[in-house]
Design a protein around this nucleic acid. Structure first.
Lengths: 230, 230
DNA sequence: TCATGTGAACAGATTCACAGCG
DNA sequence: CGCTGTGAATCTGTTCACATGA
């Protein structure tokens, strides 16, 4: 398939074809009127714009289960990321092979970053160590940090941090699940044919005192969640 | 701090206070004019709306590094999630303790889901096994799936799937990193005081043939990425 | 008096619809 | 002719500003 039309791409992506064309137009005029977009050329242009054509050395700090999982994750290489080093504070880990690579000790952190020109660091340490590791990464020249530790990191201006909270995705699912279970489909939500009854929802969070609860209760009555828009 | 104003919350969250008030108003009228919002009551209402006051049993299928990391992740319990079981296809894993819990074999999957009223499943298997596991989960009554495997899962209507791609976050960082490096700050982007020069960006993706490239090149000249809005 | 809650004004994003070009 | 690229129309989401009520 040498060329593709905005209509086809839009259908595949589930969006409006005009939006797709307008978005592409921000990158330049890469299509051919009456024909469509040259697939190979389009892929190259988008890849370049996204930074996929560059080689990004990254370090992963904290080689526990999560760090090891990241080190073994195949998706990195194909997107331009190269794991320059795996770093752990535990001396017993040093030298051990993980994902075909010897783990280095934290003492070498600065040297590794400098030697490899690393500008992106991944933190997969326990929460307690994260800020300290972050500070060292930043001091050594790292300007982008991906944080898996359950802490908010503080960094100087000019440094980007993205926090990945593995439970947030679950929370989003639970939110929709709750709405599926709530007295039949509320919106145009499909009736969830295979839906199994959700088992007894035990109250968990400390409920507010009766006084407070009654005094302020002005929302929808009962314990039924209000219908939120969209 | 028994009460809080929309102004204070907005400042803390970095958003406009009117937006915050309007958003809250969709949940009901939980504030007090001239005073603000009762913190305890507000937390409870938001928690309930998000489904955090319910107990959500989940199963994790595929107990490799990632599955083990998820099993050990502390954030789940505090958000209402209870790991009902860890499931793996490897008979050698069965019975082994991970995160203080014996791993169960895939054979038991249907029974576990039924016994625990599980409606949310987490897939942390290799890509090859994911669809098959997904099908079994759905057949057994699971209606929400969190997929860490690098595959697109197909599910019947009424089942929600969320895919977590660990490399996408890195890609977003790399995108910003690329823009930091690009000839000085482009937008109002801070000048990245600590920015270290990014090392020689080696071309990686197969470049399009010269013919194609020249024929269609209509975008911004040179190899400088176009400036995208916002 | 002070901060909420909300119509009205505004801004930004999406979609329409068609001129223009290969 | 067919599909891109894009002004204009429309829709959605945000912010303003103030009436309202504790």
């Amino acid at each position: 398939m040498p060329t593709v039309s905005s209509e086809e791409l839009a259908a595949a992506a589930g969006v409006n074809s005009a939006k797709l064309r307008k978005d592409f137009s921000y990158l330049g005029s890469y299509g051919t009127r009456g024909v469509g977009y040259d697939v190979e050329y389009l892929v190259y242009q988008i890849s370049r714009e996204l930074g996929l054509t560059q080689d990004w050395p990254v370090v992963i700090v904290g080689i526990g289960n999560l760090g090891a999982a990241l080190a073994n994750y195949g998706g990195f290489a194909s997107r331009g990321f190269r794991v320059a080093a795996l770093i752990d504070a535990d001396p017993a880990m040093a030298g051990k092979p993980v994902a075909g690579m010897a783990v280095r000790h934290t003492d070498e952190l600065e040297k590794i970053i400098d030697d490899n020109g690393v500008s992106i660091g991944v933190i997969a340490t326990p929460a307690g160590a994260a800020q300290q590791v972050c500070d060292r990464l930043v001091a050594a020249g790292v300007t982008s940090i991906l944080n898996f530790a359950p802490t908010v990191l503080s960094v100087p201006d000019g440094v980007d941090v993205r926090k990945v909270d593995l439970s947030i995705e679950l929370q989003i699912l639970a939110f929709h699940e709750q709405r599926k279970a709530g007295e039949g489909a509320i919106d145009g939500e499909s009736p969830a044919e295979g839906a199994v009854g959700v088992e007894g929802p035990a109250a968990k969070v400390t409920k507010p005192t009766a006084a407070t609860a009654q005094k302020n209760r002005k929302g929808p009555d009962g314990d039924v969640p209000a219908v939120m828009p969209a």
